[in-house]
């Protein structure tokens, strides 16, 4: 098993650092190249969401986003913690893409992408402390607990 921990400031210039670290972990996983790239994207989207929305603008670069990355022969898992505003991604409605694009809406697709990629998304919030987002993808998707509910999909 490979495990790495990373702390970055809440500034999007550190997204490249996050992607590099995820790359190092998924390279030692059992996932193929296509899925590795998607896992990198899912973590990027989750961290971007925190950096862009969890903190007030004047706090850019002042607070930390913590990541714990793990992979073994069966799965990839990431835990992301931040001390920003409470935000449960499972409450975000799945957009109708045609309508979304038709209206020229630029934002709101990151969570949609994460749900497309990951098998489980678990959110918790310790009041007054931290958001914690756990995301898991299994090499064998039949290992998912409850595929629809676990991924936060409203199916």
């Amino acid at each position: 098993m490979v495990r790495r921990e990373l702390v970055v400031p809440n500034d999007t210039q550190y997204l490249a650092t996050v992607r590099e670290e995820v790359t190092r972990v998924v390279e030692q996983s059992a996932f193929g190249l296509r899925e590795r790239k998607l896992l990198i994207l899912a973590v990027d989207e989750a961290v971007t969401n925190i950096m862009e929305h969890a903190y007030d603008n004047d706090l850019e670069g002042e607070l930390d986003v913590e990541l714990i990355l793990e992979a073994d022969a069966t799965r990839f898992e990431v835990i992301i913690r931040d001390s920003g505003k409470e935000f449960d991604p499972s409450t975000v409605e799945i957009p109708d893409i045609a309508t979304h694009v038709g209206k020229g809406q630029k934002h709101g697709l990151g969570i949609f992408l994460i749900r497309q990629i990951m098998d489980e998304i678990n959110y918790s919030y310790v009041h007054g402390e931290k958001n914690q987002l756990q995301m898991i993808k299994y090499v064998d998707r039949t290992q998912r607990k409850d595929p629809a509910a676990a991924a936060g999909r409203k199916e």
Binding site: E45, T48, V101, G104, L109, G110
Partner: peptide, 20 residues
């Protein structure tokens, strides 16, 4: 080399404004 939803969003916005 790589695009995330933020990049796709720019193209979505540009498509809408150009067509309008």
């Amino acid at each position: 080399d790589y695009i995330s939803s933020a990049g796709a969003g720019v193209l979505i916005g540009a498509r809408s404004e150009s067509q309008e």
